[in-house]
Write a protein that binds this DNA or RNA. Structure first.
Lengths: 137, 137
DNA sequence: CTTTCTGCAAACTCTTTGCACTCGT
DNA sequence: ACGAGTGCAAAGAGTTTGCAGAAAG
């Protein structure tokens, strides 16, 4: 039961670390295939699970029911655009103490918390001038 | 395209309103069938979507990839137990201003936000004495 | 009467899994 | 060489959808 390091595992981790768009398993699959064309989708899922279990990647359930992956493991928030579906990281300058759920009823053992904002991203909100539009990510 | 009121729609809404456990579509299905045995799962999904579109129920994606429904539409937080999977409402005495994402980069139009805490519920954390354990769903 | 809604079942999407083979260690 | 990992394809869970008939307005 000793975990084993394989080129596929490395490739999956590389892709997730290089991504800033919180890719889905399918997106990771497509990207890994660019460098390793014979990889299978099952292997992608198995390795993503392995990385998640090792807390090397974070599993996100944002908005819809499809799973996304994030190589940024430190606690931070997300913004999900309801129009284009993009998921962006959000700066969370609030202190931990301020965010700590002191209001949760006694007896709950809180391990982590997830904050997700929904709305329109700058691009979809039309704030970004036309010239710059399309350049957004 | 005029929405139509049907006994099935009423039954679905009644079930969600009467529930305090953030039921899944399947759970709603089971409960509606108790009073309307011929209802179909497809109808449950269609009516849940209709209610969600009308903002009569809130759609929740908490933890896993299955969809839950909540008749409490006002903004509030949730706690998800990582052991038994239960979802509880959480008191959110924080003021709106305090929770407002002033730190979100300019240009984002935030419509709503979702805060979910993960950990162990009082029951699974062992606060509840052994005699009661095992009754947890 | 017209149009939406229903029940049924098949289709669809995302994810997991069984199997025989491969390849780290 | 042992056993975890892989590719493949089939199965599984949750959700959506096409259709013919039922029923709301």
């Amino acid at each position: 039961m000793t975990p084993r390091r394989t080129p596929q595992l490395d490739a999956v981790y590389d892709v997730v670390r290089a991504a800033d768009d919180h890719p889905t398993a399918d997106t990771v699959y497509a990207r890994v295939r660019r460098v390793m064309p014979t990889v299978s989708l099952g292997t992608i899922y198995r390795n993503l699970q392995k990385l998640a279990a090792a807390r090397c990647v974070r599993v996100l359930h944002v908005g819809d029911r499809i799973t996304r992956y994030d190589a940024v493991v430190v606690e931070h928030d997300h913004f999900c655009c309801e129009r284009c579906g993009a998921v962006h990281d959000v700066e969370a300058p609030r202190t931990r103490t301020r965010r700590r759920p002191a209001h949760v009823h006694a007896g709950y053992a809180v391990r982590t918390q997830v904050v997700t904002f929904y709305g329109l991203c700058p691009h979809c909100a039309g704030v970004v001038p036309r010239v710059a539009a399309g350049a957004a990510r």
